[in-house]
């Protein structure tokens, strides 16, 4: 599904990614964890095309990043900070996004809008949305689009408890339908419950990539993360 090979990225003299290799399989929910400055967002930015890597190969479903348009149709990305056109309504924005990926399925859109409790606010300008509402709106777009892979940066930030439950349900359904998830998070207990594999990034290199079941046999994700950080240091 998602293949990253020898991914390297530097900003001037500062090397952020020094040869990241990663394979995410179809149906996998991969939790991408790491300390601040480990290179998580840079990796995501390289995958999504926001940054151009210095070296390495990135492909999704065998489609190389160099085939820009087809490649970008393979994923939908929800960043941590969502910048929106303030005077555009959430619905107009989603209806603008969906045709970029394929046909508009109004029934599906209405369903997810209802599940995330945005029936009224979806018609309001996005400038009036709270941080959590922006994430809900992006999740509605993502689950309506149903791309092959969903890439998210801290997707649960700002979500209210109801939305977190809905998010987990939708995620499960999406994966059962053949979707793949790649998301970065600092919430290790959440990653432990949602993900079926974990990747830990430190100083621009992957120091652990393992199935969650195997990891859980060794202890909590928190203790493994802390131990790995200490050990690698």
């Amino acid at each position: 599904m998602l293949t990253i090979s020898n991914l390297r990225k530097s900003f001037g003299a500062h090397t952020v990614l020094s040869g990241v290799d990663l394979q995410v399989e179809k149906g996998e929910i991969l939790g991408f964890v790491g300390g601040n400055g480990a290179g998580k967002t840079t990796t995501i930015n390289c995958i999504t095309g926001i940054l151009e890597q210095d070296d390495g190969i990135v492909s999704i479903n065998g489609v190389s990043k160099s085939d820009s348009l087809l490649y970008k149709k393979q994923f939908y990305y929800i960043p941590d900070t969502i910048h929106v056109f303030q005077n555009v309504s959430g619905l107009d924005w989603i209806q603008f996004l969906i045709p970029l990926y394929g046909e508009v399925d109004e029934a599906k859109l209405n369903l997810y809008t209802k599940r995330f409790g945005m029936e009224t606010s979806i018609h309001e300008p996005m400038g009036s949305y709270s941080y959590g509402m922006l994430h809900k709106m992006s999740l509605i777009a993502a689950f309506t689009i149903q791309p092959p892979i969903l890439i998210m940066d801290e997707p649960m930030n700002g979500l209210d408890p109801n939305a977190v439950v809905t998010f987990k349900e939708c995620l499960k359904e999406y994966v059962q339908a053949g979707g793949t998830v790649f998301f970065s998070t600092h919430l290790l207990d959440v990653a432990e419950k949602i993900c079926n594999s974990i990747t830990i990034l430190k100083d621009g290199q992957i120091i652990l990539h393992e199935d969650i079941e195997k990891l859980m046999a060794q202890g909590s994700l928190e203790s493994i993360f802390l131990e790995k950080q200490k050990h690698e240091a």
């Binding site: 999504t48 926001i50 820009s68 970008k72 910048h83 996004l97 970029l100 990926y101």
Partner: peptide, 14 residues
């Protein structure tokens, strides 16, 4: 500006 990453990550025909 801040919308530029959208232009890069969404499947727009450049």
């Amino acid at each position: 500006g801040k919308y530029y990453p959208l232009l890069q990550s969404l499947p727009f025909d450049q």
